[in-house]
């Protein structure tokens, strides 16, 4: 009896309450559910889905206390999620590609990045929103947004909106790329370059290229863009650090994990860690989504959407011109 009492007292003193556990479980559920859906259809990004689920759950409950609880998890989950997400980054060996392809891909990515950033600025979007959209469009979609967000500290609604917009733009590409290939009689290799260089999420690249049987190649090209995240993260962490040459530990660890998993870590371990990393990061985004008001997200308006679409179209046009001119 006495022991029980003691246990209860100990439990009370712990910083984590039952409600916290319930919240964590809810978020974890969102993350796991998103992961599971993404397994069924790789085009549906687990991070986007977890965010969407989080937003839905949060806006359905509309409990400020719970939102505060969810918010408590973000500082813990985000660095861990980012670090673990490093296993999802596979730094390719550039020697495997034709130099023209690498050049076109890099130029395309940069063009998209700059276009989105410039158009966003012209549309008077905030600097953070512009960067989020530019990174998401030019590099690796939702995951890039999630990774750089701790560095540039955007508003949650901007962060959420950026993820949703990038997802929408990527899915739009997934929808219309087959039509483009169909109307232009594009060869599968060129399509691989088009999809790998311009589509946002890895999953969408995979789905699109599957149609033409150039999945591997497209993903390899996409890998070049994904590798750019390491550079961007470094640059941004330096630009946005509060003191010079300061890089957050989780960025360093993320880069380390990415490099380690791409090179020395056995592929099996990497493969086994990837679901965990994805679930953790998805759970983090679910937590972020839970704390975001849909109204505020909605309030962002169509201008980021226009910027993201416009920048993407610039990249598509560039690649199409490159393909048409026979460079690739």
């Amino acid at each position: 009896m006495r022991e029980t009492v003691k246990l209860i007292e100990v439990a009370r003193e712990l910083p984590v309450s039952r409600k916290d556990v319930q919240m964590f479980l809810l978020l974890l559920l969102c993350g796991v559910l998103a992961y599971l859906i993404s397994l069924a259809d790789p085009a549906l990004e687990p991070l986007f889905l977890a965010l969407a689920f989080g937003i839905i759950a949060g806006n359905l409950q509309k409990d400020e206390e719970k939102r505060r609880m969810a918010e408590k998890f973000i500082p813990v989950l985000l660095p861990v999620g980012i670090t673990l997400y490093g296993v999802n980054i596979n730094i390719p060996y550039l020697g495997e590609f034709h130099p023209e392809v690498v050049a076109v891909t890099l130029i395309s990515a940069s063009l998209i990045f700059l276009s989105v950033f410039w158009i966003s600025s012209r549309l008077k979007l905030s600097n953070q929103m512009s960067l989020l959209l530019a990174c998401g469009s030019g590099i690796c979609g939702v995951s890039a947004i999630a990774i750089i967000s701790p560095l540039i500290k955007p508003k949650k609604e901007e962060f959420s909106a950026a993820i949703m917009i990038i997802t929408a733009v990527g899915l739009t590409g997934a929808i219309i790329y087959p039509s483009i290939a169909h109307f232009t009689d594009m060869s599968p290799e060129k399509f691989a370059v088009l999809s790998g260089a311009t589509l946002h999420q890895t999953g969408i690249v995979k789905i699109s290229s599957q149609l033409f049987g150039v999945e591997e190649k497209a993903l390899a090209i996409k890998g070049i863009r994904i590798a750019m995240i390491a550079l961007i993260v470094l640059v941004l962490s330096i630009l946005y650090s509060e003191s010079r040459f300061y890089v957050p530990w989780y960025i360093v660890s993320f880069l380390g994990v990415a490099l380690f998993s791409s090179t020395y870590l056995p592929s099996g371990i990497v493969q086994s860690l990837r679901p965990l990393a994805t679930v953790m990061f998805a759970t983090t985004l679910a937590a972020i989504g839970y704390t975001v008001s849909l109204g505020k997200v909605q309030r962002v308006g169509v201008r980021p959407l226009v910027a993201a679409y416009a920048g993407w179209i610039v990249g598509v046009v560039f690649i199409m011109l490159a393909i048409g001119s026979g460079v690739v």
Partner: peptide
């Protein structure tokens, strides 16, 4: 998503 943001706009 487009509708969401259009409505938001």
């Amino acid at each position: 998503i487009i509708s969401l943001f259009s409505a938001g706009s």
